Amino acid sequence: MAASQAVQAKLSFLFKAANTQFASCPELSNFYLHQFQKTADHANVPLADAVQRLCCARCGALFVAGINCKVRINSIDASKRRKTPGRCRNRVRITCHACRHPTVTNGSTTTLLKAVASPGLSVSVAPPVDVPTGKKTKKKKLDLQAMLNQKKAPSPSSSSFGLDDFLSSL
């Protein structure tokens, strides 16, 4: 059902006002988002999934990870994964700090990831970090010790004062 221009303008204003007021007054931002949700419900305006994931369904708080919500990624067992449509490997759980309401959404599906990685686009994945072996760590340790010993040894050719000399004179 198409919404009237007045309802669309009101929803646009409330959403923009909530985003701009979050830094200065989070309570006012929560109020604007709550009004945004109520207006969308009364006007029977379907909200996009991306917009619904931005705020708490219960109290209207704008989700900012680490500030007012906790984000956790929970993996799905292989037996349950076969039963879910789209075969999601994980679920994203966002817990609001204000009302403790969890919002659970499906993670990325393998078909979505394949669609994103089309032949024209290259998806770069960070190479795995090599775990140093015993010989390498021992060599690094010896190198660091040698550097420290060189720094501690006084150099006769250096006539200028360094930061260590200045601090030791205080």
Rank of each mutant, 00 (worst) to 15 (best):
D164V: 04
K141E: 13
K140M: 08
T133G: 15
P154N: 03
P119M: 03
G120L: 04
L113N: 06
K141F: 10
T105R: 14
A117R: 03
K152D: 05
L113D: 07
G107K: 00
A146K: 14
S118T: 13
A115N: 10
K141I: 11
V116N: 10
F161T: 12
M147R: 14
Q145G: 01
A98H: 11
L112K: 07
H101W: 06
K138M: 09
A146N: 11
V125G: 05
K136V: 14
G162I: 02
P127W: 00
K140S: 05
V129E: 06
L144N: 13
T110M: 09
V131Y: 06
K152R: 14
P128A: 15
T105H: 13
T103C: 01
S108R: 12
T110E: 15
V116I: 15
K135Y: 03
P154A: 07
L144A: 15
P156H: 04
P132E: 02
G134C: 07
A98Q: 10
T110S: 11
F161M: 14
V104G: 01
P119W: 02
S159G: 05
S124Y: 14
K136T: 14
P132K: 03
G134M: 10
A98P: 00
T95M: 04
V104N: 05
A98W: 02
F166W: 03
T133F: 09
P154M: 03
P154G: 02
A153W: 00
S122Q: 14
H97R: 13
F161P: 07
K151E: 08
R100D: 08
C99T: 01
K138R: 12
V131K: 08
D164G: 03
R93D: 07
A146P: 00
G120K: 04
P156N: 00
P132M: 04
P127C: 01
S157W: 07
G162H: 04
C96P: 01
D165M: 02
M147H: 10
M147I: 11
T137M: 12
A126G: 05
P127I: 00
V125D: 06
A153R: 09
C99I: 02
N106C: 10
C99A: 01
R93C: 15
A153H: 07
